[in-house]
Design a protein around this nucleic acid. Structure first.
Lengths: 208, 208
DNA sequence: CTACTATTCAAACGATCGTTTGATTCGTGA
DNA sequence: TCACGAATCAAACGATCGTTTGAATAGTAG
């Protein structure tokens, strides 16, 4: 038995369905009744396993972001060991883990849309949660970019990184016209996406 | 008297407050009771003047987008008359009207955040409404970009325009780290923003 | 002034929200 | 087998949701 260890199946099923429905209808728009019905679990299971809807939302983020940002930092560390590293390398260290995760079989596709929603939400609690738990990752990358773009002022760099983050979030969420052609695999589609984003972002960061 | 012309004050007050609260809490997150309370009007006034919450949301978009896209098309037409037009000119025609509107005194700041939410929402009805009413504007701009980027395939162009749109939406919504310094005017802040966005987007579109 | 419509208002509708409760079932250690 | 905590369940809580109703008020045309 696993005392104090909540039922894995129920807990994971709730997290997966919540991720999907939060991506589709937003945090306020997806109700716990929809979530639990789709997950085929009892309504009370959410409060039993997570305590509240807010905690469930935070856990949806934690489950993906812990792994994602670990991969990002690992990739960044590997890049920084190379003295010949380029802007494209650093961008790739940031973008590729996100695209790879969004490709995984356990439904990471929905999570990038949840992330996009988080950007759109101005909810103070959610922003504080993300900043408290993952702000250091963004700070590390900002430092790496700063070294590679010495001619940019700090303000200017932040300006551009903000745009890059927005474009990345937007593109990854698969908004708009980007549609995968049926004759290219999901794998190569993501590979192309990463190359596009890296090239586009590098050009923007280097402009002028 | 103005028969069939709803009370201007009440109607406008609802639209303004709704825009602010939709930007802050989302379409599902902002209730009609919050809206009408903040607007100091009766709860039933929303259904009286707009019919439903969905219609109110659409009217919030229509009020701003009619004017915004008119300005965009006007600016584009002026640009296209010039045979020496550049990519930056077309981008400016798209970006500047949005930034100018977000600067106006009647609270356009909130609207760009509503727009960002609309991008994040996957709501089919809302997407169809926007596509039906304003899709032709995007199509016109895509044509203008296409002429200036003849070496890009149609797919490649759409890829990049999608990223540009994402970056623009994100940046305009004032997300992340971009903060106006207290010693620069709102006017020059927006001017700088437009220049940043145009420069960044042009570099990305021209890359490779 | 009167008649009529446009508008505002308080109140209530049924539905759904997140959360809590208390009983029941499950699963294992002793 | 028994006991006990973990987990699930149906049911209900009060609150809030969007919407509707019917009466009260405002404001003008005749």
């Amino acid at each position: 038995m696993r005392p104090l260890q909540p039922n894995f199946s129920t807990r994971e099923r709730i997290l997966g369905v919540a991720e999907t429905l939060f991506a589709r209808h937003g945090f306020a728009g997806a109700s716990l009744r929809q979530v639990t019905a789709a997950a085929k679990v009892n309504l009370a299971a959410v409060n039993y396993h997570f305590g509240s809807k807010v905690s469930l939302i935070e856990e949806v983020f934690r489950r993906r972001l812990d792994e994602l940002n670990l991969h990002r930092l690992t990739a960044l560390a590997a890049i920084e060991a190379n003295p010949l590293r380029t802007l494209e390398d650093v961008l790739d260290a940031f973008i590729r883990p996100a695209l790879e995760q969004s490709m995984d079989s356990t439904g990471g596709t929905a999570f990038v849309r949840v992330l996009a929603r988080a950007y759109a939400e101005h909810d103070e609690r959610l922003r504080k949660f993300l900043s408290d738990n993952y702000g250091h990752v963004l700070r590390e990358f900002a430092g790496a970019f700063s070294k590679l773009l010495p001619r940019l002022s700090k303000d200017e760099l932040y300006w551009r990184l903000d745009i890059v983050a927005g474009a990345l979030t937007y593109a990854m969420a698969d908004f708009g016209m980007i549609k995968r052609k049926s004759n290219v695999s999901e794998q190569s589609h993501r590979e192309q996406s990463a190359q596009h984003l890296v090239r586009f972002a590098a050009a923007g960061l280097r402009a002028e």
